[in-house]
Design a protein around this nucleic acid. Structure first.
Length: 460
RNA sequence: GGCCCCAUCGUCUAGCGGUUAGGAUCCAUGGUUUUCAUCCAUGUUACCGGAGUUCGAGUCUCCGUGGGGUCACCA
């Protein structure tokens, strides 16, 4: 069975890049009818944070990526890790190293000065003597000293790393707590992972983890190392490049399906297809098609996708999402008309909310440039006449409002703009926006006239 | 610095030895729209460089160059 996982360390919010690898893992599991597991890597007690863990879970909930089974916390599995540490110690596959931190630093500095790779020199590997006083030992695993560690990466192809590059790394700290590469290998093996999909910043951890797999006799999963997402200049993505916290996208008015669609296309594609529903992603995704090269983050396409998903969202869904942006259309019997008039004008929910507010709230001021242009000449008189005509005709539909506009144009022998411009500014406060007839039919005759009168009053 | 990975329009990408190098986004122009947006149409723009293999190379090999990653008692 296909089993994948996402294994964040709770040291901060969920990063956009992390979400993408999680998405790839999730899609792989769902595509194969397998399981997607979530594991919190909280072995470093000093850096863990409960808030960070909650933030990550919250982000997952927002995008709708569901995990199978309980969330696994490594901090609750120390007994298990200790068991394996003792086992390796007993079997002579791991050993205590009494090197002090100062000695280690000195060794590193010397290697650095000689322009060598910095690595532990194995001085306690076969130590039988009396341990030095006052040093709490760390436990190191015996890594192979010669040969090549090789594995077939599902994204990058065959990777070969000389064993000499992998030293006897620490598997348990002086305080007895296990370290990352050790517990990851154990958990991935015990949790039955078939496919490990992660960022390629972990590529160099893989040979270390393979050492653990091999010494413990575990079966290797398939590895997929996904290249990073960089900023537009190809540099590491940082907060300066825009939002990196997944939840920021929620507050900026992005729909989760747009974000996911955007992310799935970063490093993966399926022919010329750009728009993927969640179901289509699940159906078509294959980690073997993940690109080798890193991709650059650029918000343009996300914006385009978001606009697309807003345009194609159900009204009910938009109404409920809009609540977070200060617009409550739940009791509005014109909700559907309002949404129809505005859907295509907002690339984000923030913009959509602005557009809607322009309709449901009377303008408190008039755009200076627009009013100067629109409220000149006989505008005042035309607006007055138009208001009178509205009272007489008392239109209710968009079409009826439109014919009143046509009527005034015909009777007064004026261009459409003569009524259109002042009317638009009267109703919306600016020169742009939805169709006039559409807006008036939403507002109704009395509100329309109220806004017109208010505008007339403002004309000197 | 050692080791590892990567390299097609500005950006996301298709390509898998023979294509006018395709699509999307962005940008520009035109059309639709009383306006804006949407939508439609058109256009500009790319194989990092150099050798080699081959009848033929974006595609294979090597060498450069550039970028990224990694070298913890962090994860």
């Amino acid at each position: 069975m296909t089993v994948t996982r996402f294994a964040p360390s709770p040291t901060g919010y969920l990063h956009i890049g992390g979400l993408r690898t999680a998405l790839f893992s999730w899609l792989t599991a769902r595509h194969n009818g397998g399981e997607f597991l979530l594991r919190i890597e909280d072995t470093d007690m000093a850096r863990n944070s409960e808030d960070a863990k909650d933030a990550i879970l919250k982000a997952f909930a927002w995008v709708g990526m569901s995990q199978d089974g309980e969330v696994v916390y490594q901090s609750k599995r120390f007994e298990l890790y200790t068991k394996y540490i003792n086992q390796l110690l007993d079997e002579g596959k791991a050993y205590k190293c009494y090197m002090s931190k100062d000695e280690l630093t000195a060794l590193r500095e010397e290697q650095m000065a000689n322009k060598e790779r910095t690595r532990y020199d194995g001085r306690y590997r076969d130590f039988n003597g009396t341990p030095p006083e006052g040093i709490e030992p760390v436990i190191r695993i015996k890594a192979p000293q010669e040969g090549i560690i090789t594995f077939d990466d599902g994204v990058k192809g065959e990777i070969n790393i000389a064993s000499s590059e992998v030293d006897d790394f620490v598997i348990a700290r002086a305080d007895g707590s296990p370290t990352y590469n050790f517990v990851v290998a154990i958990d991935d093996a015990l949790m039955g992972l078939s496919d490990v999909i992660r960022g390629d910043d972990h590529l160099y951890n893989t040979p270390k983890q393979i050492v653990v797999y091999n010494t413990l006799g575990f079966k290797l999963p398939n590895f997929y190392h996904v290249a990073m997402i960089n900023n537009e200049n190809g540099k590491k993505l940082s907060k300066r490049d825009g939002a990196t916290d997944v939840m920021d996208y929620k507050t900026m008015g992005y729909l989760p399906e747009a974000l996911l669609n955007f992310l799935v296309r970063l490093g993966w594609s399926h022919g010329d297809v750009e728009i993927f529903s969640i179901d289509e992603m699940i159906e078509l995704f294959d980690p073997k098609n993940i690109n080798k090269s890193s991709s650059n983050y650029n918000i343009d396409k996300l914006l385009w996708l978001n606009a697309h998903y807003i345009k194609n969202s159900d009204d009910d869904k938009l109404v409920s999402m809009l609540l977070d942006f200060g617009v409550d259309l739940r009791e509005n019997d014109k909700a559907s008309e309002i949404l129809n008039a505005t859907k295509e004008r907002g690339k984000t929910l923030v913009e959509l909310a602005e557009q809607i507010n322009l309709i449901i709230n009377a303008p408190t001021s008039y755009d200076e440039k627009a009013s100067k242009k629109a409220f000149k000449g006989e505008a005042k008189e035309i607006l007055n006449t138009f208001a009178d005509m509205l009272v007489l005709a008392s239109p209710t539909t968009k079409e009826a409002f439109h014919s009143v506009m046509e009527k005034i144009v015909a009777e007064k022998e004026i261009g459409f703009g003569k009524i259109g411009m002042p009317l638009r500014v009267s109703l919306m406060g600016s020169m742009t926006g939805s169709g006039m007839d559409e807006i008036m039919s939403i507002l109704g005759v009395s509100e329309t006239i109220a806004r017109i009168e208010k505008a007339i009053a403002s004309i000197a």
